[in-house]
Design a protein around this nucleic acid. Structure first.
Lengths: 201, 201, 201, 201
DNA sequence: GATGAATGAGCGTTCATTCAT
DNA sequence: TATGAATGAACGCTCATTCAT
């Protein structure tokens, strides 16, 4: 039986601590406002350790982006249809609500810093495209199986749904106390019914 | 006819040059990435002039926010209905598309820095609320005048429309080359027809 | 009868206002801590006016020093003996106590900035020397007139008296609440009697 | 035997170099005239090193004051009487002459900047009080042991002695070439004899 | 490999002074 | 002559990163 060397193990743990500290801080204070000193402090490591584990501040972000992309891919896989129209749509959307909630720091970073770091913009766009494709696939399934009638504007309706979800996420994270934003739960409850009934007309 | 004293005029001009330089730079590099040296260079003034005209870097942003809020108010007033349903909605939305296009820098700044500067978050929210109220008033007019039948979910439909417009704006400005975003023109063409036809059903 | 041109008059007034503002501020905040802006503000003049009336910040100090030296000279003249030993000494010393009290700002400036501005050191020293000479003359008078017997150590006793007066002034101005310093009145009352009785032994 | 870790040693050495550079410069140019760039240059360290070792420019002064106060305390302990009246007084005074000579920079700083930094005023006052108490104790000893007869005005005589010493120190440091100031040696020689003979009368 | 000391570039800001009207 | 706008040098300080042990 092989025992994994503890140092390699520790390395991973330290990497994660640094990345998480960075994500939390940058989510609150922005990339520039997140100093290596604060990261080290919050991660509980020496400041120079950051530079051996990553190539520098940018390196942490790069690693964070990669981890994010991996997790976007994983999220994609976790969806399966049931045939219940409302439940399936609800499920499809809440997967992304939950995903963004779980990754709110990096989502906020991506929103803010994408002009400096194009990969961040690409990650956001990928998140939207995957959501759109998933919904498209779902609706086509539902139509194929007769749960829904064919639509003229299906792609546009879905694009709009994705856009609305995006706004909902952005506004909730960026301005948590605003009046125009309602809870994700309410958002789902009120909209999906309406959306489906529109499609059914 | 009174000729305006040139010195007072110059003062305004320099203020504007500094504010515009700041807005452009901060739109690209963020608040922290926009140094007073860069601002001075881009505005073509001495760095210390900035500090005589504004109380500091924050002061420029404050002034920019105030100017933005004033212009939000002006935009609100510039709308009048005609009775042609599609044209009126189109007009109402394009006013905000145009407004954001004209103020893209400050809109981007607001999107990114609102956690550091709460006024920015408030400005964004106000822009959304005004848009929503304007559309509500418009639709109520159209219904009253018989151009449109009464709606169960009017407020929600309008909220969604505002959210979609917001996403459209955010994505267009933040990721201009993305595939999910279409031109404002196309967005209007395709959506309004659909939206109206939904309402008419 | 000649009427003095008001502009020349004003010039003098402005000069004085600037010098006084400078003296007050520098007495509190030191030379470097006294900015031309603060001076202008306190004097109620435009900042650039300072540079036309004086050659710059140093120029104000130079003028202040000259005024101070003139006033030291005037103070010297105002003393006359009466023959009453204690009263005369008391009078001689209180002239300087009063003088320093009246010029406390410039005295403090001189104390602090003399390494940067040698004239200030010279002014302080002159104040001490004049005081010493005045006391020497007084004592020689008193001895000559038989009010006091000849002394071995007259010059040293007087030097010491001057030094004590100087300490008293420095400590009173620099640390007004200190316990080692007593009021000028008490200082006079207690010391002179003692000093004279020592001389009389 | 334990060898002290060199890094801890180095740290102290750098601290001292910075503090000494600061003291020298501030003794000559005042607190404001002593820039962190000059300090770094004179101490032979990088400017930012100053900020890692101290919390800022004020921090250096604070540390200097603490070191000064510690050394005042040490000086206090180093005095013991012998019974020889003149020698003991001479010794008591020269301890302070020497102390001030050794700490002339911080003494000058204290004299000049005490209005901005109250601790400096307190340090000066403490130096005076300790000196006074030491002399009081000494004289009471001498009287008790019959070397000196009881005095009416002992406390005042001693206060005066302390004030004279203070002036002597201030003038010597601030205006080294002035005529009213004599060497510490001469000052001692001439005064103590006189002072003692006054007391003995 | 891990630490903590050092570094230099750059930051926002203030200042005394000059310029232009 | 008087004003207020402009200037450039310098300031205290922070930062990401490198060096030395």
């Amino acid at each position: 039986m092989v025992s994994i060397g503890s140092s390699m193990m520790d390395n991973h743990v330290v990497d994660q601590k640094i990345m998480d500290a960075f994500a939390n801080l940058a989510g609150s204070y922005g990339y520039k406002g997140t100093t290596t000193r604060k990261i080290a402090q919050q991660a509980g490591v020496n400041e120079s350790t950051i530079f051996r584990h990553f190539s520098g501040k940018q390196g942490i972000l790069k690693a964070l982006i990669e981890r994010y992309q991996d997790e976007i891919n994983k999220a994609e896989l976790s969806f399966h249809t049931t045939g219940n129209v409302e439940m399936d749509i609800r499920h499809a959307i809440s997967i992304y609500q939950y995903f963004i909630e779980q990754h709110k720091s990096i989502f906020l970073i991506a929103l803010r810093e994408s002009s400096q770091f194009p990969e961040l913009g690409q990650a956001i766009q990928r998140l939207l495209l995957i959501q759109k494709e998933m919904l498209l696939k779902l609706f086509r399934n539902l139509i194929e199986q007769g749960h829904l009638s064919a639509q003229n504007n299906l792609e546009m309706e879905i694009s709009n749904l994705v856009l609305m979800n995006f706004s909902q996420a952005v506004l909730k994270l960026a301005y948590p106390n605003t009046s125009i934003v309602i809870s994700d739960q309410d958002y789902l409850d009120k909209n999906i019914q309406n959306f489906v009934s529109n499609l059914k007309k």
